[in-house]
Design a binder for these strands. Structure first.
Lengths: 155, 155
DNA sequence: CTTGACCTTACCATTGTGGGAAGGTCTATA
DNA sequence: TATAGACCTTCCCACAATGGTAAGGTCAAG
């Protein structure tokens, strides 16, 4: 079957199938005389595996590991479990980070009148002078509370 | 002060300051005779504003809006609040998606022996044939359902 | 045989950030 | 004063994962 059919059958776009091939995540597809990529059911099976892993937030690199383990019928389940649990920890970390940002901002928004007047704790917080000047009365949950800043080197 | 000092004072890297200038988020800095960018305390203040907004997960585009509102002393606080709450919703959505992926995977890992034997429910789930049966109730965020995939983000 | 749907490769863009090279400048110290 | 080293400048490259588009070839149905 051609790439369009394989894409429809697997849920991975044709674009991404070519991309995965180009980076070596999947082997090069065989070609028809005309140069069209040709996929077997087995290939589609692998693509579905990839789609599911991707839906679970695995990176291409991790998917590569998982594919290798999948193909190795004798690997220990502990190897798979380790990768999975590492990924769970990573997902949790990211989710918590977003959650904390959300809560900080929701808190600020909760103190904002949200009317036609210009005074706004959200803006005040963002523009706050760390030094001397600019003393306001608003309740200010200082940023250090989020635990995000120390490691604000987001990749 | 030069860009290095401004970076240290604001928490925004010199690299990013130049980038923000290049995309028009901040105005072009004045220059010394030698061509060095020169920053005032006001400039640093703006950079700190930007850093804090970044820490709260705002995109450059949203920061641009916030900066405009910040500079407009007569804007209604409702305008700021609206942007903030939209962002809160976005953060919540992303956090929830990550959380769901995490839970699905943790659930699978919980059923994996994690020993030297090869049988592994995690791999089984990923490689399962959809044609056969599909009676799990795991959260699979099908594309289009979450609105996150179009830009599977995580910069 | 034409038409339209599909394939091919090869670029470009996205988002926000870092790395590095090649070359100019500033400053402190020998 | 000369020189080293820390800084600055611009410019280009890279990342992850995905979509878009253009130019051209192919296939199948009418």
């Amino acid at each position: 079957m051609n790439i369009g059919k394989a894409a429809a059958a697997s849920g991975v776009s044709a674009k991404m199938i070519r991309y995965y091939e180009s980076i070596g995540l999947i082997p090069e597809a065989s070609r028809t005389d005309a140069g069209y990529r040709d996929y077997s059911d087995k290939d589609v099976h692998r693509l579905r595996f990839i789609r599911r892993a991707r839906d679970l937030g695995f990176s291409v690199e991790k998917m590569s590991e998982l594919l290798a383990l999948w193909q190795d019928r004798d690997r220990a389940s502990s190897d798979v479990k380790r990768i999975a649990l590492e990924h769970v920890a990573e997902l949790q970390r990211k989710a918590r980070e977003l959650q904390e940002m959300s809560e900080t901002l929701a808190h600020l928004a909760g103190h904002c009148h949200g009317d036609s007047r210009p005074d706004c704790p959200i803006i005040n917080e963002l523009s706050e002078e760390t030094g001397a000047e600019d003393k306001r009365e608003v309740a200010r949950p200082h940023f250090g509370a989020t635990g995000l800043e120390p490691g604000r080197n987001r990749r």
